[in-house]
């Protein structure tokens, strides 16, 4: 038994993904997304597995993985928060949101809370939601028009 392999369902999904491209390697990003969906991050075992599936050297996969910021190389918290620090969010108070998260979670940006529930990071990129600035992304969803109090409420709801 391998340390990592796709579930039967994901393997089927992978086969379908591969057919979209005339060149195998083009399936790399979607395949890595699939691995991350299954495992929560892309482990070294997953890296090797994906490399084998696509007939690529492991170093090539690693190089791509480290180029793209949305791939986790270690297991994040069950909820992962990304706080936008780009211009529009900064103009509307992103700094206050950052401080409130830091003090509420008690761990620095890039870290996971001790109970493994929440990890967070600040990002310098605009997330394409400046109309609801300041904002953050938690797993798949955006939360905007934030105030420090709104951050408290969001965290409280998350912990329930």
């Amino acid at each position: 038994m391998k340390e990592f392999e796709f579930t039967a369902e994901n393997l089927e999904h992978f086969e379908e993904i591969r057919k979209r491209y005339p060149v195998k390697r083009a399936a790399l990003l979607p395949t890595l997304h699939l691995a991350q969906e299954q495992l929560g991050y892309v482990s070294e075992a997953a890296e090797t597995y994906v490399a084998e599936l696509l007939d690529l050297p492991v170093v090539d996969v690693r190089e791509v993985l480290s180029f793209y910021t949305l791939f986790h190389r270690r297991l994040p918290g069950r909820r992962h928060i990304r706080v936008c620090m780009s211009l529009s969010c900064w103009l509307r108070g992103a700094k206050e949101i950052e401080s409130r998260l830091a003090s509420q979670l008690g761990v620095a940006s890039g870290e996971t809370s001790p109970d493994g529930a929440i990890s967070w990071e600040t990002v310098p990129d605009c997330m394409g939601a400046c109309e609801i600035a300041p904002m953050l992304q938690m797993n798949k969803d955006y939360h905007g028009d934030l105030t420090p109090e709104a951050v408290d409420q969001l965290l409280e709801k998350t912990r329930e």
Partner: peptide, 8 residues
């Protein structure tokens, strides 16, 4: 086909 980027 839709192709998802990964943060860059």
């Amino acid at each position: 086909y839709i192709h998802r980027g990964a943060g860059a």
